[in-house]
C-alpha cells in the first residue's frame, strides 16, 4: 500500500455552527486521484478548505482556488514564484534547488516551452497546469483543485484531467483531489470518488463502486 499523505479522523465539515457532514474519517494515499462531486452548495469547497488547512504526513497541502484570474504582467515562471510566497527570499527569488524543481515541474506538466510567456496569454487549461506546477514546486504532497475544469472547452478539460491523472501515476507522485461537475470526464481520470450525496451522506468510493457513489448526488 502506498504512503498515507493525510489521515483524516472524525472531521466535521460545515460553516459556522451548521455542520454538513459529521465525523468523516478517511486516508489519502500518494498517487490517489480523487474526484469530488456534489451539487452546488453541497460543501465541496468547504471540504477542500478544511483539508487545505490540515497538516499532511511530512508533506504540504496546497489548494488551487477556482477561477483564479490570469493577471497580465507575470510570466509563468514569475507566477510560480509569486505563489511560492513562503519559499522565496525577501527579494522574491527561489533557491537554486527550487529553481531546478520549477524547471522539472514545468517539464512534468509539459508546459516548459511556456515558461516565459505572459500568463494572460495562456489558455485556461495551460494556466491550470501552471497552477499545478506551482503546487509541485511547493512540494505539496496533496494538491486540491477547486473546479479546475469549470469554463474550460472540451479540449482543455480533457487536457487538464489527463494531466492530473498522469501526475498521480509517476514516481514520487502526490495525491490529487479535484472537484468538478464534469462527472463523465472526471470519472475517467480518477481512481476514487468522494460524493456529497443529495441525501446529505458523505460517500467515499474506490474503483469498483464509483458509479453508485456518483449516482447518489442526484435527487432520485
Amino acid at each position: 500500500m502506498s504512503r498515507i499523505m493525510i489521515h483524516i479522523d472524525g472531521m466535521n465539515i460545515g460553516h459556522g455552527k451548521k455542520i454538513l457532514y459529521e465525523k468523516i474519517s478517511f486516508d489519502i494515499h500518494a498517487g490517489d486521484c480523487i474526484m469530488l462531486c456534489g451539487a452546488n452548495g453541497s460543501g465541496k469547497t468547504t471540504l477542500m478548505k478544511a483539508i487545505a488547512g490540515m497538516q499532511g504526513n511530512d508533506c504540504r497541502v496546497s489548494m488551487i482556488p477556482s477561477r483564479l484570474p490570469k493577471v497580465k504582467g507575470f510570466t509563468v515562471k514569475e507566477f510560480v514564484k509569486v505563489s511560492c510566497f513562503r519559499q522565496t527570499d525577501m527579494s522574491g527569488k527561489l533557491t537554486e534547488q527550487d529553481e531546478y524543481n520549477l524547471e522539472k515541474a514545468l517539464e512534468r506538466l509539459g508546459i516548459v516551452h511556456l515558461k516565459d510567456r505572459d500568463i494572460s496569454t495562456l489558455s485556461d487549461g495551460e494556466f491550470q497546469k501552471a497552477c499545478i506546477a506551482a503546487s509541485l514546486v511547493q512540494k505539496a504532497g496533496v494538491i486540491l483543485l477547486d473546479e479546475p475544469t469549470a469554463f474550460l472547452d472540451a479540449e482543455n478539460k480533457t487536457a487538464v484531467l489527463q494531466a492530473l491523472s498522469n501526475l498521480c501515476k509517476g514516481e514520487d507522485s502526490p495525491a490529487v483531489i479535484f472537484s468538478t461537475h464534469d462527472l463523465h470526464e472526471g470519472m475517467k481520470a480518477c481512481n476514487r470518488v468522494i460524493a456529497l450525496g443529495a441525501d446529505g451522506v458523505f460517500r467515499l468510493a474506490g474503483r469498483d463502486d464509483i458509479d453508485k457513489a456518483v449516482q447518489s448526488i442526484f435527487r432520485q
Binding site: P65, L68, P69, F74, V82, S83, C84, F85, R86, G92
Partner: peptide
C-alpha cells in the same frame, strides 16, 4: 504581487 490573484489565493499561499 500575490494579492492581485485574490484574497483566497493569498491566504492559501
Amino acid at each position: 504581487d500575490l494579492i492581485l490573484f485574490g484574497d483566497e489565493f493569498t491566504e492559501l499561499s
